[in-house]
Design a protein around this nucleic acid. Structure first.
Lengths: 306, 306
DNA sequence: ACCGACCATTCAGCAACGCTTCACGATATC
DNA sequence: GATATCGTGAAGCGTTGCTGAATGGTCGGT
């Protein structure tokens, strides 16, 4: 009888590509992974892997079985979800990964509602950027992750992941309340300003630079940080200008001024789960709580930048 | 991680109803089955079974999980089938259950063709009536079974089973070549004849009696046997009349006369596999070989009875 | 109403499975 | 060519999961 845990190992190998990575992901020793694959080959009577250089790649048969493994593992999670739905109350632990701005604004009110409705459901929230969050989702490290997409920079669709839109968050120009950059007539007035922005290694950092270039401004990024609270502080204290998402701008910019950029760009924020957990009651509960939190946000629109 | 073999046990419990029957079906001791179920309840944190009287019945949660188990197990067989399809040649053992008349007429030529095309594929054929054949199919005792349906007596659809029609086999009146019943003008001339027929405990026996009664004849069954070769012999030697399927009548009735009954009743013969093995190359190969054997049968139509 | 048959569970014991650790050969990188 | 990385194999050992016997409970038959 084909073993699910071994199929899981094969599936992870298909996803990660090396025995070592699989071992790390599943908390096994590489030897154990190797033995599981050997066992799988013995059981099926088919050679599933092939050594190419010092890497192990799947044969055609291996890919076929790995594809089935993915379907089966999704089925297992669906079974567990349906089983959880038969229980009267939600319980257990739900592990969530979120990037900073949602963790700052949406998660706390959602958790307040949730813990009132489902006192036995424990929720752990881990701060992760989108990429590692997805990686952790597929590795079963997290059960639900928050993701974001910047205009024109769509996230690739990942097999086995089910995504649901949560909100559209405006990307606003934030300038100090006083000083040389406090009242730009157009974006070009900020060509010489000090900018603070995410590093170019992450999606928001890429987008900010691309977008400003598209408007004819090459930003001079003096303060490069992924921390939006830090960016907000730099703007508030008059040291920089920045493009700040509405979720952060709403509460953390103090007296700094907000202006809506031309074209009113928005990032799209979504939740994602492994497909098999789409109908899990805990997934549903958290998603609706987050949606409610998003709906009750102040949606005042700042004045337009010329 | 949910264990497939335990899910299989739960599925068998849903199908068979008692721990003992499950144990027999899976070649375990009842104790092992009980422990597996306990382990499953522990893993899922849900009570799946409930003791009612001296029986064990599934709770709602248990039924939910058993339903998923059925789907998952079907998926496993689909995986194995697709895996077998990646291999260049067919090999292994295919276990078949067939009732007598098909085993007599179609199986041998089909196997001749098959062993020529797939020398490494071993086929075992076991003679079983339709009911036990299906039971064996679900218990993984057989991989493919032959079934039959008599007019008006449809087999119930069984979950997890995929059926494909094979041929329609005429049900013919067989009378001795000489003696008082050798030339009936109508079926009513045989009201006083000695009949040989299947016992009323099996589908063919039920149908024969019903059908004759519908024609106004209450058959006096003197020789009750499930063995169609024996029935054929009794007709051939002048001791009885019978309704014999074409597959047997074609070769085993010697000089006895065949007459087509009013309405030209036919039994429908089909093959059945567990749904997951529908696309297994061995399934496909045997089904096409059987279909070819059926197609090359002599299809001469005997004269009509008045 | 009692006895026997049947059903499920529990416990102890034991075999087999499946992991880790360690050592090794092979391969890519600097 | 030294070094790190990768996958595999053998030994050892803890855990899992089976069998078999004993127990408690339930139903049907006499």
């Amino acid at each position: 009888m084909l073993h699910l845990s071994r199929l899981r190992t094969l599936h992870e190998l298909a996803r990660l590509g090396t025995v070592g990575a699989v071992a790390r992901s599943l908390s096994y020793s590489p030897s154990a992974v190797s033995q599981q694959l050997a066992q799988l080959e013995k059981e099926t009577g088919t050679s599933l892997t092939e050594q190419v250089g010092r890497r192990l790649v799947l044969t055609d048969a291996g890919r076929v079985l790995a594809e089935h493994a993915a379907v089966l593992l999704e089925g297992v999670e669906r079974a567990e979800s349906d089983l959880a739905a038969t229980r009267p109350a939600l319980s257990g632990v739900l592990r969530v990964a979120s990037f900073q701005s949602v963790m700052l604004s949406l998660i706390p009110p959602a958790l307040t509602v949730l813990s009132a409705e489902h006192p036995d459901l424990q929720i752990e929230v881990h701060q992760r950027e989108v990429e590692p969050a997805y990686e952790g989702l597929l590795a079963h490290e997290f059960d639900l992750v928050l993701g974001e997409e910047y205009p024109g920079l769509d996230e690739p669709h990942r097999p086995g992941v089910q995504r649901e839109p949560l909100l559209e968050d405006p990307l606003l120009l934030a300038v100090p309340s006083s000083g040389p950059w406090c009242d730009p007539e157009g974006i070009e007035d900020l060509a010489d300003a000090s900018w603070t922005a995410d590093p170019e290694t992450v999606m928001p950092g890429v987008w900010v630079r691309n977008h400003l270039r598209g408007l004819g401004v090459e930003p001079r990024v003096r303060f490069e940080t992924i921390d939006l609270l830090l960016q907000a502080h730099l703007v508030r204290s008059g040291h920089a200008v920045a493009i700040i998402p509405g979720l952060v701008a709403r509460e953390h910019l103090g007296s700094a001024r907000l202006l809506e950029l031309a074209g009113a760009p928005r990032r799209r924020v979504h939740t994602a789960v492994r497909s098999g957990r789409r109908d899990h009651p805990a997934t549903r509960a958290l998603r609706t709580a987050l949606a409610e939190a998003a709906a009750s946000l102040d949606s005042a629109v700042p004045p337009k930048l010329s």
